[in-house]
């Protein structure tokens, strides 16, 4: 399958949005933004929505799209289920069967595979469509059950959360924590430099979402992680995270 000449709406606040736009247009599709929704609502082929940190924004955007496409329930909405389940996002819509979750982190160039998580309500035909769509972007897919953060974002976010606890407690310096995980157990990046690359807001959204939905102590966010997001120190994107990045 190819997405050449298809129309894909990419909406949402995550840093994933920009990278997805580039990746999708590289594969020949026409990328549209939210303010072009009304103009193209009769001809849109796919919707990708990627808000994670602010869930009120996510709800507003999803409902706006769902309403504009009310007459076309066959158009799939692929939404990030990083901070919230796809099932909950689908529950906000009038056509929940078209909503399917997915999740990953930037940079997309380093992801050979992207996870998909159908909501309880997702129709099988929609799952097939979004699977083919993601594969047309030259990414392998793996279908997992719908739970906050899927697999890779959930596991990595909790590793990062633990690294932040260790940092807060003064167990070791940020540099030593990163070196230790690369040289002692072969991680591709140290957890704190990795968080800076992904965006601390994205990581925090996953941990907070797990804590909110599952309620277990194991998902309690490190308070420093939350404070850094509130202070706008989200990583490379803002030139300041655990490390400083001067342009």
């Amino acid at each position: 399958m190819t997405i050449a000449n298809k129309k894909v709406l990419v909406a949402g606040m995550s840093p994933l949005a920009q990278e997805l736009k580039e990746l999708i247009s590289k594969h020949g599709a026409q990328v549209l933004s939210l303010d072009q929704l009304d103009e193209h609502q009769d001809s849109l082929d796919y919707v990708v929505e990627v808000t994670n940190y602010n869930l009120e924004d996510k709800k507003r955007i999803i409902q706006q799209i769902d309403q504009a496409l009310a007459a076309r329930p066959e158009v799939p909405i692929l939404t990030t289920s990083l901070a919230i389940t796809a099932t909950e996002v689908a529950s906000w819509t009038t056509s929940p069967q078209r909503v399917c979750g997915f999740g990953t982190f930037v940079p997309l160039a380093e992801r050979k595979l992207i996870e998909l998580a159908p909501a309880l309500q997702t129709e099988e035909s929609i799952v097939k469509k979004v699977e083919a769509f993601v594969q047309s972007l030259e990414k392998e897919t793996s279908i997992v059950d719908d739970e906050v953060g899927l697999v890779f974002p959930r596991v990595l976010s909790l590793i990062i959360n633990e690294a932040v606890f260790a940092l807060m407690e003064g167990t070791a310096s940020k540099e030593d924590i990163d070196i230790a995980m690369k040289k002692g157990t072969n991680y591709p990046y140290g957890p704190l430099e990795w968080a800076d690359q992904i965006g601390l807001d994205e990581v925090y959204a996953v941990v907070r979402g797990l804590y909110r939905d599952l309620g277990e102590e194991r998902f309690r966010p490190a308070s420093l992680l939350r404070k850094m997001v509130l202070a706008g120190r989200v990583g490379k994107r803002s030139n300041q995270g655990f490390y400083s990045y001067n342009k």
């Binding site: 260790a166 070791a172 002692g184």
Partner: peptide, 24 residues
């Protein structure tokens, strides 16, 4: 390559790597 850490359970690696196994 040495790193230094305080005397806390699991030190650095065995502590921070726990979620890789446990959460999986």
């Amino acid at each position: 390559v040495p790193v230094t850490c305080n005397d806390s359970p699991g030190f650095i690696v065995n502590r921070i790597a726990r979620p890789y196994y446990n959460e999986s």
